[in-house]
Design a binder for these strands. Structure first.
Ligand code: FES
Ligand code: FES
Lengths: 162, 162
DNA sequence: GGAATTAAGGATATATCATATCCGAAAACG
DNA sequence: CGTTTTCGGATATGATATATCCTTAATTCC
């Protein structure tokens, strides 16, 4: 059970977009360069964010991406689910129904207890991600990343933002 | 990010083994029949449980599997990790190091804030699973599964247990 | 001792999904 | 109009999940 690397990419891209001044856009090309990622494939991750309405786009030169909402209105789960999908990590194939001791056509009233526990764990994972806002991440990063790197990164970004 | 179906199989098999009387073994063949699963492939899942020391085996006719510990000493996480592996679901490829604004050879003191949050969610998932014991599952199942099915299932099992 | 049964593990085949690239269409900008 | 950009579709490749087969060694029963 491994998350796609697109998740890491999307989260880092959102962190950068969160630092963009009002009304500016940043292109896939710039985001790919900044993170050392394959531009074409990163583009798919950004498209996922776009379809989830987390980012807005504009075409043409000086086009690109910007956040669709303030960073305090976006949580980790939204970003992760945008690229990873909303499906639960555990899928029950209802093997209990194959028990030869069951009466023909017997129908279960509840989902299997095994599945319920696995789904509960899944929900705990989602809850943790739901509680972290993009603005929290930006706050932590701005404290932890050395201020000269932090500053020069955003200069680099602004030079390329349309 | 999808768990293998082996996880469902392993959990259900453990629940059955937990109901086995002291000193008896149940074969792959019986477990596969009971759950309607491919015997050869289920065998791989059971081997994983064996390597994790969750079950013990014996060879020959009347051989098979039994739990290596009482059901109250086995939790969900152990079983899930046995077949799914212990690797974290999020892997950081350290893309922050590709930032062209970084000084040459700069070394980070901490893991990335993004990764720490993702790992925290992962830990919440594991914690939930760690808190549920196999004996809890058996308790729930014995309450929820209609008593005639429950009873006939274990009669079916005992007839095949060596 | 010999036949049957079983778990363990290696080899292999297939399907599904993640990763990655390429291209054409449509929109925006100068 | 030409360039730059997002977007979607098509396609290729690699890794992993799923599944089967076969050999070996241990155990039981006759
Ligand atoms: S039948 Fe699917 S988890 Fe129990
Ligand atoms: S560099 Fe990997 S999560 Fe930030």
């Amino acid at each position: 059970m491994i998350l796609k690397s697109q998740v890491e990419w999307a989260l880092h891209c959102c962190a950068i977009l969160a630092g963009l001044p009002e009304g500016r856009y940043l292109s896939t090309k710039a985001l790919a360069e900044l993170h050392g990622l394959p531009k074409e494939y990163l583009s798919k991750a950004l498209q996922s964010l776009s379809q989830a309405s987390l980012v807005e786009t504009t075409l043409g030169p000086s086009g690109g991406y910007r956040l669709a909402k303030p960073p305090s209105d976006i949580n980790f789960l939204e970003i992760v689910e945008a690229v990873e999908g909303k499906a639960r990590s555990f899928t029950c194939t209802n093997i209990r129904a194959n028990n030869p001791c069951r009466p023909e056509g017997y129908c279960d009233s509840k989902p299997c207890a095994v599945a319920r526990i696995m789904w509960e764990a899944d929900e705990a994972w989602r809850d943790t991600l739901r509680r972290v806002r993009l603005s929290d991440l930006v706050g932590t990063l701005s404290e932890e990343v050395p201020s000269d790197i932090w500053r020069s990164t955003f200069e680099w970004v602004l030079k390329r933002a349309g």
